[in-house]
Write a protein that binds this DNA or RNA. Structure first.
Lengths: 296, 296
DNA sequence: TAAAAATACTCCATAGGTATTTTAT
DNA sequence: ATAAAATACCTATGGAGTATTTTTA
């Protein structure tokens, strides 16, 4: 049974006439006839007694009419409801971000974006790059911002902002402002865990220069940027960290940047999305905004 | 949008799979694909993200699902509701009957019928034959029992029981037990109104013997059988009435039958129905019961 | 006679199928 | 290699139309 059938039926019922119904619905009278016949056949009962040129609804028709309008309205509601949420820019955007972008990049971007779209609220989930990448790949998240590419054909990567990794040590620790590559392997070193984008990027750059993690004098592996920073501050060792993560500490003289000759550890933060997912309007707006930032 | 579409959609939604839905609905997987596509096109939005072999409903699909089941249930309810009332033998039967059958015939028939079908209730409307005939013809009544045929191509007439009109006078009035035709015109006469079946039948029989109503010595025209009976009892005049209407009065000796030589006023009571109307189950049962009586 | 519904037919969209291809596990 | 969805293509049903007939007011 088609909704159209019900619409035709109600029109006939209300007009007490096939031809008037046909005018109302911009159909021809034979079409109305055949529709009514179809419904009668489907329900296995007559709906109208054709008495001369008058039409009298049967008991069955009365029952059908009393409930058909309900169904028609219901369907219209669904359609309009879907049209609404299709263009609804409200709701919550959940961003999965790795430590560095989640802490130092996203907040200012979100705050700027919110000036234009006040009705969109945000939730930022902070996990390491690997975890975020997996969550996007497994459809637990629609949008992620990470500090390293973990290739996955399901995912769409787009650069957001440039960053740089630098070697930092405690300001209190004496030492040269510039060292050479070979000095790195000797110094006590602090590392992030394996899923970290910072660590992955660092490893990539070092191995490009012939140094493996195993060559380093690793004093400790810590689960967050802050933990590493604190450890460095306390003089436990040096570490390679995002410039954005240590900017304030450098300014305040708590940490000290040590230049490594010939080592330039540029990296990007990436916007990741699932290639095959469709996004609610609010997400599309925000992602477009991020893409624009990425191009600039 | 077809209800079928909605059923397919809900099956896919619940199974999170096109092929499982196809098995469940005994359709092929391509059919499911095309149905979902049709709904997506109609609503102008994606309903499922096809991510590898997993299927993820969009926000729109969530909304649609939450309301589609409602509609489907609604429609099932309608169908079952209609099936129920189609064979529902409960409810009320309204019989339009003219004076004589309504008073002397119908009550006993109804009472007998009710022994078998206790759940059917009856309402008997008593009007003269003409009025009842019109009401059936104009679809205000589905069933009538009248004492005379008023031809109308819309109507189906079937005999119910035989009756006989007889000439009656007051028992107190002296007079012969048998008279000849020519004596009729002289005597003071009481008549029913023009719409009366009794009157119509009487006129037909008399005119068959060459006597017109205008030839009679009409003392009064009264609107009901009882009124005529009372008038006859009080000696105002004679009248031609149904045997069934005066049976008790004859037995009790309150009224007296006067035989008219060569005048035999047999008549039938008729069941009338509208040829083009359909009847609820209860009516069909009762009408069949009446037809059976009519044949016997 | 005129108005309304039914009927007969034609045309085209689409529901349904089968066979095959694409994609991801 | 396999399982699932998409795609291509075919057929038959049924929706919508036009033209005509039937029926009744």
């Amino acid at each position: 049974m088609d909704i159209h059938h019900l619409k035709v039926f109600t029109a006939v019922f209300k007009n007490r006439s096939f031809s008037k119904a046909s005018e109302q619905l911009s159909l021809t009278q034979p079409t109305i006839s055949s529709h009514i016949k179809a419904v009668e056949d489907e329900l296995g009962c007559k709906l109208f007694d054709r008495v001369g040129r008058t039409i009298i609804p049967t008991k069955e028709a009365e029952l059908l009419y009393s409930r058909a309008s309900e169904i028609i309205e219901n369907l219209e509601e669904i359609k309009s409801g879907i049209c609404r949420i299709k263009d609804d820019i409200g709701g919550e955007i959940i961003i999965g971000a790795s430590t560095i972008p989640g802490t130092y990049i996203i907040p200012s971007i979100v705050s700027e974006f919110k000036k234009k779209y006040k009705e969109i609220s945000f939730q930022v989930i902070i996990e390491d790059s690997k975890k975020i990448t997996d969550m996007v790949a497994c459809d637990q998240l629609l949008l992620g911002i990470v500090g390293a590419k973990m290739e996955n054909r399901k995912l769409e990567y787009r650069p957001l902002v440039e960053d740089e990794l630098i070697l930092v040590s405690s300001a209190k620790a004496l030492g040269r402002k510039t060292i050479s590559m070979k000095n790195i392997t000797g110094m006590p070193f602090l590392l992030r865990e394996e899923g970290s984008g910072t660590r992955k990027t660092m490893e990539r750059h070092l191995s490009g220069r012939g140094i493996d993690v195993k060559d380093l004098n690793v004093v400790a592996v810590l689960g967050s940027t802050d933990a590493v920073k604190e450890a460095v501050k306390s003089g436990l060792g040096a570490s390679i960290l995002s410039r954005v993560a240590v900017r304030d500490d450098l300014k305040l003289g708590i940490l000290r940047e040590v230049k490594v000759k010939g080592l330039n550890m540029k990296r990007s933060f990436y916007i990741i999305t699932h290639r095959k997912r469709t996004f609610p309007k609010s997400y599309r707006l925000f992602i477009d905004y991020l893409y624009l930032k990425g191009k600039a």
